[in-house]
């Protein structure tokens, strides 16, 4: 559905987007992940035809956009990072405007507006002015405005900033439903949990360059350790006695903080072996927890920088 090849855009001396390629198939949700200023919004703007690339190509359904009035733009639904709504108009009128921009009016328009408001849980607020909405409600309406014309490709630029967890979950469920209906989604965020939960594939960019493009599973394979075991020992161990644990083939890393241990293992299946080793060597413990290495770790290991710096 979407294919991006070698996109470049510079603002003066700054290469905001420096050779980005990515693709999103129908029924697929691709995460575009990167820290502030990585070039996510610039990339999305070029895909939506708002910004002319310096180089590279954007194909929507196999065809490049042919100018401002290209009807192929109807295939795209853009949820901009900045809330783009008329504060002084009621929510319903905002949606009516955006529907009309895509040629929807009359009963078709009203139907589209009704279901979009439902989609974001604002069905009872259609008559209220946007200025009276909370930040999260505006975000949700901002998202609804992109769905009216039922586009095949959704470009979501940080659509859930400031939305409370409950509404966010509702939105996620709905996005999943859209995916099942065969829409292609490009989801820009720097919330790793969102990306992990929603996306089939992740494109990580930094300084305008793609540093990784893979499935979650593939990304974890890039990590030295995919799982972290936290073990709390009964007594702090300062000696070198634990160093032998590192020699187990399953153990990839070991960190000591007083009585706390963090042990990196490639697979969760290795856990019993590690725990047994501890007991065998006289280390008793009270509390064990296991967590998957997250995207934060992935990003850190790929760029040496934290995702939220």
């Amino acid at each position: 559905m979407l294919e991006v090849k070698g996109l470049r855009k510079s603002f003066g001396p700054l290469a905001a987007v420096d050779g980005v390629s990515l693709r999103a198939r129908a029924g697929e949700m691709v995460g575009l992940l990167g820290p502030n200023g990585a070039g996510k919004t610039t990339t999305v703007s070029m895909i939506a035809g708002l910004l002319r690339p310096d180089a590279g190509e954007v194909l929507i359904a196999g065809r490049p956009l042919g100018g401002d009035t290209d009807p192929a733009k109807r295939n795209i639904g853009l949820v901009p990072q900045q809330i783009a709504l008329y504060e002084e108009l009621p929510a319903g009128e905002n949606l009516a405007l955006f529907a009309a921009l895509y040629g929807l009016e009359g009963s078709a328009g009203r139907r589209a507006i009704g279901s979009a408001l439902d989609f974001v849980g604002l069905a009872d607020r259609g008559k209220d002015r946007v200025a009276t909405f909370s930040g999260g409600m505006k975000r949700r309406l901002n998202l609804a405005a992109a769905l009216l014309h039922d586009p095949e490709l959704l470009l979501l630029d940080e659509p859930t900033v400031g939305v409370d967890p409950q509404s966010r979950n509702a939105i996620f469920d709905n996005l999943e439903a859209l995916k099942k209906r065969g829409k292609a989604l490009l989801y820009t965020t720097h919330y790793m949990e969102e990306a992990e939960r929603l996306c089939d594939r992740l494109v990580i960019i930094d300084h305008g360059k793609v540093v990784a493009d893979d499935t979650m599973h593939g990304l974890y394979r890039l990590l030295p350790a995919a799982n972290m075991l936290s073990v709390e020992l009964d007594e702090a161990e300062d000696g070198a006695g634990l160093d032998a644990l590192r020699r187990l083939p399953e153990v990839q890393s070991l960190e000591k903080r007083g009585a706390g241990l963090r042990i990196g293992v490639r697979e969760l299946a290795a856990t019993p072996k590690v725990l047994a080793w501890l007991l065998d060597h006289g280390y008793s413990y009270q509390h064990v927890a296991s967590e998957r290495a997250d995207l934060e770790t992935v990003f850190l290991s790929l760029t040496g920088r934290s995702l939220r710096d």
Partner: peptide
């Protein structure tokens, strides 16, 4: 500045 203009331009409309 508020991004509304870009949003309008995302629709298939001539200048």
């Amino acid at each position: 500045r508020e991004g509304l203009w870009s949003r309008l331009r995302a629709a298939p409309l001539s200048r």
